[in-house]
Amino acid sequence: MPMLARVLTTEFLKLKRTLALWMVLLAPFVVVLLHTLIGHFGAAQVIARHRDYARDLSQNVTMMWTLLLMPLFITLETSLLAGLEHADKNWKNLLALPSPRWTVYFSKLLVAASLLWLAHLVLIAGTIVAGHFLMWEKPGLLPNGLPLRPIIVPMAKVSVGVLLALTIQHWVSLRWQSFTAAFGFGMMAMVLGFVAVNSADCVPRFPWSMPLHLVRAGGQEAWTMLLTSFAVAAIVAAVGCWEFSRRDVTN
């Protein structure tokens, strides 16, 4: 088995009995539950205005996830993955094993990305289940049924567009031992993301707001943004890995 795959299996093993997998379920669940409740309690108004809740559901779920829960999710997941090594000063043990350091760096990044993508799948599935529940519980709320494309396509875009923010947050979490530093950075980025959304200049450029802009963008612009963010994410990952590989392990 190639070394990267071996290290990757150990990273998944380390997640046993941690909150990592619970967060994959919990974070999307919060978003879905909130919008189910909004649909439930606001159904009368929506029906009276002859609006279709399907569009509101997919748009609001995407916005809340992209601006609030997802930044929180990547901050907590990357901090948790890095914290497994920071906590008991495990770096000296892990990096004295015969695996190239880049395999450790990329394994942790791949695990974080996998968990994030899994959370997106849970969110898509949850939104669909919520939509069907509301159709059953409040007939008239979704008169044209629940189209899947407006739910799946934005989420697919977000799941790729977030890679840049993820690679930055991953490097920050590994770089500083303090959970506070990583969490503080993530929260600051999330707040700046809120601010950037209101600026036409900033929203496509700031890694934490770019996924939302990507949802709104279409055609060539969307592809350009996707490819650019992917390329910049690859550069950030390469630079982070280079720094990680050269770092002295002093604790």
Partner: peptide, 26 residues
Amino acid sequence: SLVENPSVYPHLTAGENLDIARRILG
């Protein structure tokens, strides 16, 4: 190697801790 205090993952069992090194070493 054993550098200063042992570095272990407290939320894993002894066998799982050893499995990490075992997998990397093949």
